[in-house]
Amino acid sequence: MDSTLLITVVLITVVGVVLAIVLYFVAQKFKVVEDERIDIVEACLPGANCGGCGSAGCHDFAQRLVAAPQIGSLFCPVGGNEVMNKVANVLGQEAVEQAKMVAVLKCNGSCFNRPKTNTYEGLSSCRVKAALYSGDTACRYGCLGCGDCVSACKFGALSMDVSTGLPVVDESKCTACGACVAACPKTIIELRPVGLKNCRVVVICSSKDKGAVARKACSAACIGCGKCQKICPFGAITIENNLAYIDPSLCKLCTKCVSECPTGAIHKFNFPKKPKEDIA
């Protein structure tokens, strides 16, 4: 009885010690030498592993940051300037300020504006739908409404609005990681600077069809008439392929184009409401 106990204890101890030694040597043999700054930098990063920086994940990005001679060209859109400053401190470099961006949906083809011409019945995925055909409305450029961008967003910033059939961006949650831009087969989502006091003026349409065709397909389409281009005092609006584009770096938020647009394709975001409107 006693000897059984003894043998067991001794045996297990011996096995344990032997394995520990083996483990030690294995660990030595396969040791990976890593710059310890990588871990410190990674700790500064948001840890969302969203890939918005172009790297495979936050660890990968930290490696690139440490390896880079100048971190100016690297930017974490999720953490923004705050995180980049922290990283710059760790690495003893200067961070380059970048404007905060936000995802903007450039389509206003809601069920009301853009009547359906057929019914799509395949797998509910924009990718599948785009590969199959031009879409269930007469507009070949607009939102397909299957929500690939919603499922691509890791921050819950996108949601489908059931009444319009279009995704909605929750600007407070959007980190401008760009996942939705990559997920959208029609590339109708654009990352734009949030703008002064969060105010933006954007052409909410992506249709490159000629005016009449675009108008017929969707009542809120940009018809490329050029009125906005003429009225813009800052030359911020260009028209290419029947589609107006407002350059955010030139736009001074005068909103003249908004009222000039005959189809209402130009929207202003987050402008403070006039007191009169509040009463009304």
Binding site: G122, L123, S125, R127, V128, A131
Partner: peptide, 12 residues
Amino acid sequence: IPLLDIIRVNKV
């Protein structure tokens, strides 16, 4: 399950 729908796209 619409197996082919997504297989076709990923095949491309």
